[in-house]
Design a protein around this nucleic acid. Structure first.
Lengths: 217, 217
DNA sequence: ACGAGGAGTTACAACTTCTCACGAATGCAT
DNA sequence: ATGCATTCGTGAGAAGTTGTAACTCCTCGT
């Protein structure tokens, strides 16, 4: 980040304080969830008064928006780091699972119940497409001739979300199923809906992952 | 409900006020989400003072707990109503989807980001098992000899969640995939993660539904 | 008819986000 | 180095929230 290095001292201080605020916010989210995030509590822990934080964030919404952006960025980076080493879809799936288990609240910040007044800025959709691009590339390398179902044909006709990625229809469908099915298992597991059911969520995740290869739909 | 009919006038009045409070709560949740639910606002709309509500609910948590319970009950009733007519899994899937689309916030109350201090009472797990029982019955009738994968064998060894339902291993796995896959699609759709991606969520839902039959995993 | 208990009220405490006006510290330019 | 301008942090305070406590009043059962 050359820009932040070359900035004025004031800007550097500002960026540092913003980062410190966000760090405290993450700690608070990790323990009590995003809905319990309190600017006042953050200020108290930092040893400053409440209104001081408003010099750095316009309000709670802007802070949460930034945290969501950072969470997306973190996930995209994790996926991309694995993707550039030529990881296959299964490896990417475990990167996703590990990332989610490392901080469930962070996962829910992205994929959980939407925040009431929040609307994703364009930057988010861009990051989302980055992740999807890595998924499409991995699936293209792994199973370039995935069978094309009728729904895959529909996807081929509506492939805005794939950017200009040249993945064939069958791969589009694979990547989408990868996302929705693994999210289905992960979100239920993280929300605790499997506790007390007896089976091992990790095995279910693996089974869903295995089921992604070799059947149409 | 014979009990509420035979109760004293005071108890009947009490039940009626509780129902009215919950109704206003649902309206508020439908518009702004559960996190924006305010006892004060409910009281204002009912024309009473804030603390009056504490005669009927111990606090916000108890009200939300009850709403979650009612939501589960509503879903279980919807599924069961279809199940008793001998509906196949596809029909149950559309019942689920219709129920979710009718009030996304209600769906998220059950399957979305867990409420911080909330722990499901035993009654909830009971209702959850009711739903699962209807699913298992429908799948057993539809595809009694579903193939048993290694994971299905694991499920057969850990079938607490199925109660005493005699569904074979392959059916256990089908019902579980039904739940997780459809939830994966639904929750992402309701949270708006598909908006701007171009394709039709209904077709994706249908494709995932179709994919549930005829492949192992 | 009367006593007991429930319902609703106001007042208050402890929170929350967020605005405003003020003083102090800091960096930049002269 | 001096002075100005911008920014930072503060305290006060408004408008909310949940939740408690004490008090009145009405109603219901005896």
């Amino acid at each position: 980040m050359a820009k932040s290095d070359a900035a004025t001292p004031r800007e550097r201080y500002r960026a540092q304080v913003r980062a410190e605020i966000k760090q405290h916010a993450w700690e608070q989210i990790a323990t009590a969830g995003a809905s319990a995030l309190s600017l006042n509590a953050i200020a108290k822990r930092m040893g400053v008064s409440g209104p001081a934080l408003y010099r750095y964030f316009a309000g709670r919404d802007e802070l949460i928006t930034e945290l969501i952006r950072d969470a997306y960025r973190s996930l995209a980076d994790a996926v991309h780091a694995a993707a550039v080493t030529g990881a296959d879809p299964a490896a990417l799936a475990h990167v996703l699972r590990d990332w989610a288990l490392a901080d469930p609240h962070r996962y829910f910040l992205i994929y959980g119940t939407p925040v009431p007044g929040y609307h994703a800025p364009d930057e988010i959709t861009g990051i989302s497409q980055e992740i999807m691009a890595d998924l499409l590339t991995a699936w293209t390398a792994f199973e370039p001739d995935a069978p094309a179902s009728p729904f895959a044909a529909h996807l081929a006709d509506h492939r805005d979300w794939a950017g200009d990625h040249p993945a064939p229809p069958g791969v589009l469908r694979r990547a989408l199923a990868f996302w929705t099915r693994l999210h289905g298992v992960l979100s239920l597991e993280l929300a605790g809906h499997f506790t007390g059911m007896g089976f091992d969520p990790a095995l279910l995740f693996q089974a869903e992952l295995d089921g992604l290869v070799g059947c149409e739909g």
